[in-house]
């Protein structure tokens, strides 16, 4: 993946497939570490599946028996000198945590979080994004947006375009002129 944001998109798509109704994503950059957590309330994984989930030949999909999302995210974090962890419980959900050493030459850029966040918008699932850089923080909660929208679908193209601009402006403000 060219951006860590694409890994996040890929893992969050797993939460969608796991029938989650709420996915919380935190992106925190401080003390030379970029920490990404993705927590969902989906169906979770059995202990046996969890033990094999970082194996590229473990997958739930039926089109091809290859599952690269988790292994790619794990490698992307570990090659920077960071770490990767995944916890899951059937019926309760899954949490994925990846830590990247910020100044590692092997770290991919964080990439476009705004584009990633709006790609995931859908009526039947909520996302809470918490984006923090050196204690400056921005929270984007689709439950608040949906409350404002009423019966207008959150995935209407006009709404997606508006929310992307809102996210870009806020993230740029939090970044304070630096590129992560």
């Amino acid at each position: 993946m060219r951006e860590i944001a694409l890994n996040i998109l890929d893992i969050a798509e797993n939460s969608v497939k796991a029938k989650a109704t709420l996915v919380e994503i935190t992106v925190t950059a401080e003390n030379n570490v970029l920490t990404v957590t993705i927590t969902d309330n989906g169906v979770g994984m059995s202990k046996d599946f969890l033990e094999r989930v970082t194996d590229p030949f473990t997958t739930t999909r039926t089109t091809r028996k290859v599952g690269m999302g988790i292994p790619l995210f794990k490698d992307a974090a570990e090659m920077t000198g960071g770490s990767f962890g995944i916890e899951s419980e059937p019926g309760r959900g899954t949490r994925v945590t990846a830590k990247f050493v910020l100044d590692s030459i092997d770290r991919a850029p964080l990439g476009d979080i705004a584009d990633t966040a709006v790609t995931l918008l859908a009526p039947g699932i909520d996302f809470v994004w918490v984006y923090t850089v050196d204690k400056r923080s921005f929270t984007f909660d689709t439950r608040e947006i949906k409350a404002e929208l009423g019966d207008i679908p959150i995935d209407s193209p006009e709404i997606i375009s508006f929310l992307r601009n809102l996210l870009k402006e806020n993230i740029e403000s939090i970044n304070g002129g630096i590129t992560i």
Binding site: M1, D10, T119
Partner: peptide, 27 residues
Amino acid sequence: GMATCGIAAGARPVFNEFVDLVAAKGM
């Protein structure tokens, strides 16, 4: 298509391009 293969190949900017085009045209 937005699985790992699609995302790695560039599906996200394609998705967002279509969204912007539809929104701009008011379809």
